[in-house]
Computed example of a mutant assay.
Amino acid sequence: MVHKEKQRDLDALIKSNLLANQFLKKTSLVLIWGASKGGERIAEKLIDKGFNVVGFIDRDFKKWGKNILERPVYGDHTSLPAIEYEYIVIATTPGRADAAAILDSLGKVFKKDYIYVW
């Protein structure tokens, strides 16, 4: 279990480096899609690098209105118009396909407007 947690932290670090170097601008307002451990890990690494993570979006209504890393957890995709963001990082494996399909239907472009890390 200890090695699994270390591996996940290292994975988040590597992916945050990739995001920082290839996809995000330091001034970007980043929204994390996925408010579970994976979303928290990637957000923490991005915050450590100086990025402005504005919050999380999650379909689990039990998380709505709570905070993770002092950032709000918003509702499902219907919350997007009320959130000020510039780039979305999808950090959920079970919801990745649904999140990408929703973002595509809203005219968002993979890699330009959003990317997934898990």
Rank of each mutant, 00 (worst) to 15 (best):
F23A: 15
E86R: 08
G50I: 09
H3S: 03
Y85L: 06
G75F: 06
I88C: 07
A12D: 08
K66I: 10
A100N: 09
S79F: 09
P94E: 14
M1Q: 12
D60M: 06
A20Q: 08
A20P: 03
K108F: 01
G95P: 13
T27P: 13
R71P: 01
K37C: 11
H77Y: 07
T93L: 14
D11L: 11
F110Q: 02
K63N: 08
L29K: 15
K15M: 11
K63F: 07
E70K: 03
K26C: 10
R41Y: 10
N21L: 14
A82N: 13
F56P: 00
G38H: 03
K6N: 10
K25N: 15
M1L: 06
N21F: 02
F23N: 15
V109N: 09
V2F: 01
K108T: 00
N21P: 06
K45N: 13
K15Q: 13
V2G: 07
R41H: 08
K108V: 02
S28I: 14
K26N: 15
K112I: 04
G65K: 06
K108R: 09
F110G: 00
V89P: 07
G38R: 10
K6D: 04
K25P: 09
D98Y: 04
A35S: 03
N52L: 08
L80W: 06
T92D: 03
W118V: 10
K26A: 15
F23C: 12
S105Y: 00
I57P: 04
I102K: 01
D104M: 01
H3V: 12
H77Q: 15
P81W: 08
L103C: 00
N67M: 10
Y114V: 04
K25W: 04
P72W: 10
D113A: 04
D104G: 04
G55E: 11
K26F: 12
K49S: 13
G34E: 02
D113I: 08
D98N: 13
D104Q: 07
H77C: 15
D58Y: 02
G38V: 09
K4I: 13
K6V: 08
F110T: 08
T93S: 13
V54I: 07
N67D: 05
A101D: 08
G39F: 07
Q7E: 14
A100R: 01
A20I: 03
V73E: 01
K6L: 11
V117L: 06
I90W: 05
K6T: 01
E70C: 00
R59N: 13
F61P: 11
I115M: 12
G39Y: 01
L69F: 04
K26R: 13
G39A: 02
